[in-house]
Design a protein around this nucleic acid. Structure first.
Length: 580
RNA sequence: CGGGGUGUGGCGCAGUUGGCUAGCGCACCUGCUUUGGGAGCAGGGGGUCGUGGGUUCGAGUCCCACCACCCCGACCA
């Protein structure tokens, strides 16, 4: 490939909308082009890298028995009605009608479609287990996209679905898939990927893990224990906080707190601190008022709240919505509410901390000396509703937890029978009985993985691509083509030989300054660079340079091919498996 | 959905007390000179000034509406 033919102009200036270092480089290098909000075209450089990511995924999925299929982007609404998600999933699913006014959706995931596929093709226990996967476009109408390819609305995803007769079989396969994911992320060149316990969200199911690239530009918060290896998404992370109470219990007592609404205002006014306050956070979940009570120094974790309520539909409460259940915004407390009209949820920080200040459900009034055990009806349930914080004791080993950010590049779920049961997928078991298969699903964002590689592997001049997914493995820079007319043909010959030997080679023989040429080469990021200049010509030499390392060396051109084969092998070996 | 911001050539921007053929840098084309970290000179091509309407002798510039995109928040496998 000649660089002048490569579609995708490299930009001299930084695009002003670039959010992250990787986004900036992908735009500047002419890898991607934004078409709309969260919608991008992939130009040849990005498409090449993505194709290689896909090929690695294919190899690893096939290696664990996956069968590649392709399901449609568009589905009739009926399939999503069958599972119930047509109603439960919100506006992130794009809905429309076709010319016959038939309601359709753009699939944002394919559980419904794959169950429909499987139930019409699988009847017997003999056919289990099996896994099908596809690499297909998804559309999710995210309320907000950002960060280039890290968070987009339309994207390519590898999604796999496995079906099993027993939970044990699913669990075993889940482990296999987990191991395949570890291999995939290592082979594409990501180093700091960790698997963490995750929320099951709208997917349902019980066990789930996310594969996260540790990165400051990530949107998720990871909770990690360096001592024992506990790691979880903050949405589900637990900690072993203790609430050792040594204080004598105080009696309940009302106190006037004029216009003191926030925890900060109330505790300052009363001369106490947030660990002695009860924070009431009001939501509406599935249309019913809900108050979450957490101690004043903690934050409500909405994912945990959703789980406790068993709904995905929650929103903050508006001020007018407090009166019907007997309270008022800013002064909400657990005593005296009409519990036929409002759901109360208590975090254990409230249940176990003594002598808390609570709202008295009346304007400018609080109550002191609240003690959960004493003041609430026996048997009132206690939940875990709060965010884990930096330094909290690990739930497994008690050592301090660490928080960091991460980009979710993949996830795996044990779904159980949520979809197979809802959609009446049954097969005949050995004993003749009808059974419902148990399902797992496994996703990897292809574009996001490619973009994550850049986030993790770059300098200010450009990406450094791992050999396994580099758009071009070798770039040949011909310097001084005007001064010495043998340079360009020599570069051409080398290009042809290396291409014939199976390398992806980009040849630059333009009459431009060396700085210009090298700057372009840095943006393209080929791991191996061969530089030819007039001074190499008489000696039959060429210069070999790696994108990642400064040392350059001259080598005889005759040996270039052998050296490169060896070099590529070495680079690939570092990624865990020889690149084909 | 709430708050804020920006729309002028491929990219980055100036021009906005209304006034001539709408400019600059980079990129692009032609020629010459250059050539080891974004070269120089000369010439050249390219723009419905986001869209629609209005005010005016005259609108990139003023008014109204709309649209797109960006940021913060809400939201989210």
């Amino acid at each position: 490939m000649y660089i002048e033919h490569l579609v995708g102009k490299r930009l001299p200036d930084d695009p002003k909308d670039a959010q992250t270092p990787g986004h900036r480089l992908l735009l500047r290098g002419g890898y991607i082009r934004q078409v709309g909000q969260g919608i991008y075209s992939l130009l040849p450089l990005a498409q090449r890298a993505c194709s290689r990511v896909e090929e690695i995924i294919r190899q690893e999925m096939n290696a664990i028995g996956g069968q590649e299929i392709l399901m449609p982007v568009v589905s009739p609404a009926e399939l999503w009605r069958e599972s119930g998600r047509y109603e439960t999933v919100g506006s992130e699913m794009l809905r429309f009608t076709d010319r016959n006014e038939h309601p359709c959706v753009l699939n944002m995931t394919h559980e419904e479609v794959v169950v429909d596929l499987a139930r019409s093709n699988v009847d017997s226990y003999r056919q289990f287990p099996f896994m099908v996967y596809q690499i297909q476009t998804k559309f999710r109408d995210e309320p907000r996209s950002r960060g280039g390819l890290i968070r987009v609305r339309e994207f390519t995803m590898k999604d796999g679905y496995s079906f099993h007769r027993t939970q044990e079989d699913l669990a075993a396969y889940y482990k296999e898939c987990h191991a395949a994911y570890v291999r995939i992320f290592r082979r594409v060149g990501l180093r700091q990927v960790v698997d963490i316990e995750s929320d099951t969200g709208m997917m349902g199911g019980s066990v789930a893990h996310e594969f996260m690239l540790v990165s400051d530009v990530g949107e998720d918060t990871l909770v990690l224990c360096d001592a024992c290896g506990y790691r979880a998404n903050r949405e589900v992370a637990r900690s072993a906080r203790s609430y050792a109470a040594t204080e004598a219990l105080q009696p309940l007592g009302n106190v006037v707190t004029p216009a003191k609404k926030t925890i900060e205002e109330v505790t300052t006014f009363l001369g106490t601190d947030p660990t002695h306050a009860c924070k009431a956070v009001a939501f509406v979940g599935d249309g019913r008022p809900v108050i979450a009570f957490v101690r004043g120094d903690f934050e409500v974790n909405q994912a945990k709240l959703r789980k406790a309520l068993r709904t995905g539909d929650i929103r903050p409460m508006t001020e007018e919505e407090f009166a019907p259940f007997g309270s008022v915004a800013g002064f909400v407390g657990p005593i005296g509410l009409d519990t036929s009209k409002v759901t109360l949820l208590f975090d254990e920080s409230v249940a176990r901390s003594p002598n808390l200040v609570i709202g008295a459900n009346a304007v400018d009034l609080h109550t002191t000396g609240f003690n959960f055990e004493r003041d609430m009806p026996a048997g009132t349930p206690v939940h875990d509703l709060t965010d884990v914080n930096e330094g909290d004791p690990c739930v497994e080993c008690g050592k301090p937890l660490r928080l960091t950010r991460g980009i979710e590049v993949g996830n795996i779920f044990q779904l159980g029978t949520k979809y197979t049961a809802a959609m009446s997928f049954e097969y005949s078991e050995e004993d003749g009985s009808l059974r419902t298969p148990i399902m797992g699903c496994y996703g990897i964002g292809v574009g996001r993985t490619m973009a994550s590689v850049v986030e993790e592997n770059h300098d200010k001049f450009g990406p450094f691509w791992p050999i396994s997914i580099a758009p071009f493995q070798v770039q040949i820079c011909c310097l001084g083509t005007a001064k010495d007319e043998t340079v360009a043909p020599t570069g051409q010959k080398l290009h042809d030989e290396l291409t014939a030997a199976g390398f992806d080679v980009l040849l630059d023989r333009r009459s431009v300054g060396a700085g210009f040429m090298f700057a372009d080469a840095d943006l393209i990021g080929a791991p191996i660079r061969i530089i030819l200049s007039p001074r190499h010509m008489p000696r039959g030499m060429a210069e070999l340079k790696f994108r990642l390392a400064e040392p350059r060396e001259d080598l005889p051109r005759e040996a270039a091919l052998d050296t490169l084969v060896e070099t590529v092998r070495t680079l690939a070996a570092e990624l865990g498996k020889p690149y084909a």
